[in-house]
Simulated scan of single mutants.
Amino acid sequence: MLYYDVTNSIGSKTKSGLQRVASALRRALEAETTLIPIVWSTRRARYESGRDLVHFSTSDTLLIPDLFAEEDRPRFANFIQSCPARTAAIFHDAIPVRFPEFTWPHSVRKHPRYLKDLAHFDQILAVSTQSKNELVGFWQWLGLPTPPPVEVVPSGADIHPDRPRVTGDQFPSGHQILQTGILEPRKNQTTSLAAAKILHQQGVGFRLGFIGRVNPHYGKPIQQAIKQATKAGISVKHHGKLTDDELAGLYREARFTLLPSLAEGNGLPVLESLWQGLPVICSKLPAADDWAAGEAVRVVDPLTPEALATAMREWLENDAAYAKSVTAARSMPLPTWHQSAQSILSLLKPSN
Score class of each variant (00 low, 15 high):
E264I: 10
A229P: 09
N266D: 14
K220T: 12
R98L: 15
T103A: 12
R163H: 12
G156D: 05
R313F: 01
V297E: 05
K13D: 14
D169V: 07
Q223V: 01
Y322D: 04
E70C: 04
I95G: 09
F171S: 08
T103W: 01
G17R: 06
Q19D: 10
E295S: 14
L271D: 04
I90D: 01
T14L: 11
S131P: 03
G277L: 09
S41I: 03
L334W: 05
I80T: 07
H160R: 13
D290H: 09
Q223I: 00
H106G: 00
T167W: 02
V54A: 10
E184A: 03
A320T: 15
A77C: 11
R313Q: 15
G174T: 05
T42P: 00
R27N: 10
T129F: 02
W315L: 15
P286V: 11
L271E: 05
F256Q: 04
A263Y: 06
A22N: 06
I198Y: 01
P335C: 13
H338D: 15
K227R: 13
V97M: 09
S9M: 15
V280A: 06
V297D: 04
E295M: 08
P74M: 04
L303T: 10
S173N: 10
A195G: 06
T7K: 06
E264C: 10
P74V: 05
S49W: 14
G233R: 06
D169T: 14
D290M: 09
K241C: 02
